[in-house]
């Protein structure tokens, strides 16, 4: 390929992977501020945001300010952060498990978080504990999986052991969630648990979004920094080691980072499935499998996607549709499409 051909190829990747997603996100953000029970014109939203940022007056009704600052802004922020986090974690897990059909909950983080949230609801703890326990148990579940896998390693394939440990711990925690649901008060607690399991951003407050920004950044920054090496983790173990990678240590760091961001996202959004599975595929179609581009592209596409779906979830019907469920309606057909394509290649 000629140098000009290469330059054209780079521009195409830049456009598809970064420029278009960023423009799409900006458009979606404007739309998301606008749509809803109280329509807010983009100019009004901008004026309120500007006034809030600079501490000046905007001269618009107080109701509008409440809608923009307390309702839409946190929710838009939550959708962007959760979408970016789940997509980045999904892309990472698919690489290190060398399997494009893996999603961030392969190591039991979702089941752990679900158990934590259900336990907090069951014990009638304050709402903050629902998020807190979801986060903590998400991390505990994955740590347990990793510990089990380390203990039974030996001559086995370490990845296979990890996946099997994930399945076992995940099933155990799902059984525990079922038990909590069975024991829960059917009029008060059971609906709350079910609602959490459906996944939603409707309860997201500004404080929640700010609260997960730190752990999400703590996970996302190392992943972005080592993204070239995630490519090497997607090779056969021996090949990667022969190329100079300390695979064991790198894998622990990468799994820890991906788990941290997944647990953070799930703690405020509930179990929002599919994003971590399908967005990395979309991103791979746009920019190819190289994590140098794939990880940033997944982050952008994931943020835009979840904001779009959440905007649909709160506007499509008279009542709000559960985000997780809507996601599954969109995700399942797409997954089938991927399976049909799989015979050709994972591009």
């Amino acid at each position: 390929m000629t140098a000009t051909g290469r330059a054209a190829g780079r521009w195409r990747l830049l456009l598809a992977g970064y420029v278009l997603p960023v423009l799409a996100i900006l458009g979606l953000v404007a739309l998301a501020f606008n749509l809803g029970r109280y329509p807010v014109a983009p100019g009004q939203a901008l004026a309120i945001l500007y006034a809030a940022a600079t501490g000046t007056e905007h001269g618009l009704p107080a109701t509008l300010e409440t809608v923009v600052m307390d309702v839409r802004l946190p929710r838009i922020g939550a959708a962007l952060v959760v979408g970016a986090a789940l997509a980045a974690a999904g892309a990472t897990y698919q690489g290190i498990f060398r399997n494009p059909l893996v999603s961030p909950d392969i190591l039991g983080v979702s089941s752990g978080a679900a158990f934590g949230a259900a336990l907090a609801i069951f014990l009638a703890l304050p709402f903050l504990f629902v998020q807190g326990l979801a986060f903590v148990f998400g991390l505990v579940a994955v740590s347990a999986v990793y510990l089990i896998a380390t203990l039974v390693r030996g001559a086995h394939n370490p990845l296979l052991v990890l996946v099997l440990a994930g399945v076992v711990v995940g099933s155990l925690l799902s059984a525990a969630v079922s038990m909590l649901k069975y024991l829960a008060d059917p009029y008060d607690q059971l609906p709350a648990i079910e609602y959490w399991l459906l996944g939603s951003l409707s309860a997201a407050r500004a404080g929640d979004v700010l609260g997960i920004l730190v752990p999400v950044a703590l996970g996302l920054i190392p992943l972005v920094l080592v993204r070239w090496r995630i490519n090497l983790l997607s090779l056969d173990e021996e090949e990667a080691r022969a190329l100079g990678v300390n695979t064991g240590r790198l894998r622990v760091v990468v799994i820890a980072a991906a788990t941290l961001i997944t647990a953070s996202a799930i703690s405020i959004a509930g179990t929002v499935g599919w994003v971590g599975l399908i967005i990395p595929h979309l991103a791979r179609m746009l920019v190819g499998p190289n994590y140098i581009r794939l990880l940033p592209a997944s982050i952008l596409v994931g943020a835009g996607y979840l904001l779009a779906v959440d905007t649909v979830a709160r506007n499509a019907a008279a009542i709000e549709l559960p985000l997780g469920t809507l996601n599954a309606f969109l995700g399942a057909p797409f997954f089938l499409y991927l399976l049909a394509r799989a015979r050709r290649s994972w591009t």
């Binding site: 690489g95 060398r98 399997n99 494009p100 490519n231 997607s234 090779l235 056969d236 021996e238 090949e239 080691r241 022969a242 190329l243 100079g244 990678v245 300390n246 791979r284 190819g288 499998p289 190289n290 290649s345 994972w346 591009t347």
Partner: peptide
């Protein structure tokens, strides 16, 4: 020697490489 130090001294050509993802 560390893995990287070994990799700067020995290059390995595996019998075949599994292409899990379509890297160029």
């Amino acid at each position: 020697l560390s893995r990287a130090a070994i990799a700067r001294r020995i290059g390995y050509v595996p019998q075949h490489a599994e292409g899990y993802f379509p890297f160029t």
